[in-house]
Amino acid sequence: MPVNTLPAGIELGLSWLRDTAWSTGLRESLWAYPMVDTAHVLGLIAFVGAAIVLDLRLVGLALPALRVSEVVERTRRPLYVGFAAMATTGLLLFFANPLKFATNPFFQAKVGLLAVAGLNAGLFHLTTYRHVAAWDSAVAPPGRARIAGSISLVAWMAVIAVGRLIAFYETGAGV
């Protein structure tokens, strides 16, 4: 459920953040904000692109001849680099408009979906993936790996969807 009013303390903190010189500067900048936003999308393409390839392998829909562990090892770098770019620029974007984002239902949904994607990846690595040696070369990995791959695919597509919709809330026409 969207939260339209924030707890008083949080609202106070976020409006203080919004009124700092750095936040105001970024919000009102002609070039910095669009550039950070563009970097956010490029980081996302790198990260989600690599995640899709890995997830497709986990679900059993692509790259059957490659061992799962090789796909995991080889997608690690684009995943880390893409995630770092995405997270840094994402925090900057939030920092420029903290109150507006915190009360935006699409932003709230995005935070929830990111948590789902993160927990899913964490659980997969701590449980199913620990025994990868047993099914490394299987064309169709075990059910639990296929479920983790499916959840990841759906969650990241949903993150992209609600993320892009943030700009359309209230105004009905975003940048």
Binding site: L44, G49, V53, L66, E70, I160, A161
Partner: peptide
């Protein structure tokens, strides 16, 4: 949104191959 989701899939599937052409990534094949 559909445009961006399509782009993410293009990103994943085209770029993995481009990276492999350059010499990075999935060296196993």
């Amino acid at each position: 949104v559909a445009h961006l989701i399509g782009l993410a899939w293009v990103g994943g599937t085209m770029f993995v191959v481009d990276l492999r052409l350059i010499g990075f990534g999935l060296q196993g094949r």
